[in-house]
Write a protein that binds this DNA or RNA. Structure first.
Lengths: 197, 197
DNA sequence: ATCGGTACTCTACAGCTGTAGAAGGAGGGC
DNA sequence: GCCCTCCTTCTACAGCTGTAGAGTACCGAT
């Protein structure tokens, strides 16, 4: 993806996050990116191409992102892992809020546009990471347990993104928020780790 | 909400679920509902009104829904509760798939349209139900734990809706799917119930 | 300097969308 | 009978959207 296209795609992501899929139009992207009218239409000839551009750019950004989540150094401590995961989640709902919102919008879109699914590879990387951790911790069915864990934390993320401040949840970004998040992640981790009944 | 409006709103929900928010236009609703062009525009004069109609209808439908989740009869057994919850979730992703998808779309929409938030009251009822259950089970902080539990199960739901069949998950509606779902819900329940470290 | 190509910009246009108001028609009260 | 009201349908219209193609400026090769 050329630099120009990436810039346009970034503008598009911002639009999707702030105005929804409905706000994603060629001309709106032009305006957002501060380029002459018609540019987006030239680089992404159809709307489908534009949406795919957004999805692809999201994937690119996700791959560029460094996520260590505290699993690299020292012994495997569930509490430290939860702490690390909470940190990542917190980032995704503050600094990376727009990207995260755009991602959810695209996921919903992929529901009725199967061709997006391949590009997006929903949760592929977090899941792999979670699986590695669970394996290391001696989980009996890492495949399934990692899927559960990612689903849980994704739910946490979504809940706080769309219901932000709705019911006494601390505002994201604050240490209290992170602490509560870490506690929730610990709960999720404990839940999936425990021996099955 | 009059019967006519409800019919239009139902058609609108179907459109949102199958085509996304972008497919929600006055004329498309007319066509979907099989009424003369212009009807939707007469009942929901602006697009904002139309979206609010959808959200309101979703709330109406949710309130009309009977959810017992196995918490009414017999002693409180976490396993039976998980079973009941899994059953409800399974329904939401099969019979009620469109409503669930529309709900997620509206939640995302509410992110940049605060006035929708009040009508939608995201997860209010499930959370109240979860809180009651957790209280009965002697949880130490039902308020927070219920929020976690609902977030977890919502994550489960979302994951299976958007990634359906992606990674070896059984197709929704089958007994295997329900069983796996129940297992995941049990994990969530255990996670939030356990005494905090 | 000329040429060919590539990257970018401009413009046209058909179709769709949101919105408002006029037209029609059924039913109920006098 | 007539009229008034409400519900429903029809139509107009300005602005936006997707898409295509023509135009233009830059740049390296010859």
């Amino acid at each position: 993806m050329t630099e120009r296209m990436a810039a346009l795609a970034d503008a598009a992501i911002h639009l999707v996050a702030t105005k929804g899929m409905r706000g994603l139009t060629h001309r709106a992207v032009d305006a957002q990116a501060g380029v002459p009218t018609g540019s987006t239409s030239a680089y992404f000839r159809t709307r489908k191409a534009l949406v795919e551009g957004v999805v692809q750019r999201l994937a690119e950004l996700e791959n560029a992102e460094v996520v260590e989540a505290g699993m690299t150094t020292g012994p495997l401590d569930p509490d430290r892992l939860a702490e690390g995961a909470a940190h990542v989640l917190d980032q995704w709902m503050t600094t990376g809020r727009e990207r995260t919102l755009a991602r959810y919008a695209c996921l919903l879109e992929a529901t009725h546009h199967p061709e997006l699914r391949g590009i997006l590879a929903h949760g592929e990387r977090p899941r792999a990471q979670a699986r590695a951790v669970l394996e290391a911790l001696g989980a009996e069915d890492p495949e399934r347990q990692s899927r559960e864990l990612v689903a849980f934390t994704d739910g946490l993320l979504f809940d706080r993104l769309v219901g932000a401040g709705a019911l006494g949840a601390p505002t994201p970004g604050t240490p209290e928020s992170r602490a509560e998040l870490a506690q929730a992640v610990r709960a999720a981790l404990r839940g999936v780790l425990e021996p099955r009944s």
